[in-house]
């Protein structure tokens, strides 16, 4: 027990974790908010403006003295536009990793303010994004290299743990509630959802009349969600996360819940550890890249490319990439390579 506590304390105190996962989450949340800002921006007046359909107030979460001041933003036409602009700029910064802490604060404040004006607009994606952005305020900025064992490392790891726990709560609750519903346990839930126009593409209707597909999809969803908090602590983690990403891509395409799906994919990518990202990158370099190159060099593809007239430019890019990858890897002694004699002569 003591050993476990010591190990847990060390995990929190010494080194920052999930740096790559956090970047993936920042990129996904940035893309989600960018989608919102770019598509909803032109409707700002209709949704949140002084004569818009929104009539909410920040009074729900702000002090009664502060709320009227914050609500003034919605009494002028430019107020909601300004908030959408803040959301857009913050989302671009999150995607590119620029000043991520300030960008997180900007994204959070603009989302909170807009949601308070029109709470009916949000979905689960907006909800989880706001929670996670709050925890992300304590995470290290993307380019920061902190001192080992410092307080900011501790706070970063606490925020990482908070995001992880929030994902666990989300899946556990959703799975637990589904398990208590008879439509999920009798396997017809996915068929019923496929019949609802708001949540389903017409292309979903016929396939989900198949008893095998609808039962498998209903039980699969239930099983995936219920076991999620446990599976991600085992060797099945990557398999579970990959399934989650595929499932949410399906939700985005077939159900049209773009914001929700992008946020969930970000949360799934967040749970991949730094070691796993390094391993995946290495595997990609060793396995996928050579195959892609071989495919590119194959006669049918080259023939197609020559026909389209784009071949030479792509071949040039490929050749320059190969020159880059053929330079010595980082761990070899660069001084012993071709540049060494030149430097010696300089001296």
């Amino acid at each position: 027990m003591n050993h476990l506590l010591h190990k847990g304390w060390g995990w929190l105190a010494n080194e920052p974790h999930q740096r790559q996962g956090l970047r993936a989450l920042q990129v996904c949340l940035g893309l989600m908010l960018l989608f919102r800002a770019s598509t909803e921006g032109r409707f700002a007046s209709y949704l949140w403006g002084p004569t818009g359909i929104g009539a909410g107030s920040t009074l729900d979460f702000l002090h009664p003295r502060l709320a009227p001041i914050a609500d003034r933003l919605f009494t002028v036409e430019q107020g909601p536009l300004l908030l959408v602009l803040v959301m857009g700029v913050s989302s671009v910064c999150l995607v590119f990793g620029w000043s991520t802490r300030i960008a997180t604060a900007g994204a959070l404040l603009s989302s909170l303010a807009l949601a308070s004006r029109l709470p009916e607009l949000g979905d689960g994606g907006d909800n989880v994004a706001r929670l996670v952005l709050t925890y992300m305020l304590f995470a290290l900025p993307a380019d920061r290299q902190p001192r080992r064992g410092s307080l900011e490392v501790w706070l970063h790891n606490i925020s990482i743990l908070a995001i992880g726990l929030q994902i666990g709560v989300l899946y556990l609750t959703s799975g637990f509630l589904k398990a208590t519903g008879d439509k999920w346990s009798n396997g017809t839930a996915m068929y019923l959802i496929s019949q609802v126009e708001w949540f389903s593409h017409p292309a979903m209707r016929a396939p989900f009349q198949n008893p095998y597909l609808t039962t498998l999809a209903s039980y699969g969803t239930l099983f995936f969600q219920l076991w999620f908090p446990i599976a991600i602590l085992t060797r099945l983690r990557l398999l579970w996360l990959a399934f989650g990403v595929v499932m949410h891509l399906g939700i985005a395409t077939l159900m049209g819940l773009i914001c929700f799906s992008v946020a969930m994919i970000g949360l799934e990518l967040f749970l991949v550890t730094d070691k796993e990202y390094a391993w995946l990158s290495d595997w990609h370099q060793r396995t996928i890249n050579p195959r892609l190159h071989a495919l590119w060099r194959s006669r049918p593809v080259q023939a197609l490319v020559q026909l389209s007239g784009q071949g030479q430019r792509f071949n040039d890019v490929l050749a320059s990439r190969q020159r880059m990858t053929s330079t010595p890897p980082a761990h070899t002694d660069v001084m012993s390579s071709q540049t060494t004699p030149l430097r010696t002569e300089d001296r």
Binding site: F61, N127, L177, K178, G181, A189, I193
Partner: peptide, 18 residues
């Protein structure tokens, strides 16, 4: 008040009508 959340869409019973 400060961290409102609801994960009950499609649960316990999925939406069954448009």
């Amino acid at each position: 008040t400060y961290f409102p959340q609801n994960w009950s869409l499609f649960a316990p019973t999925p939406v069954q009508s448009t």
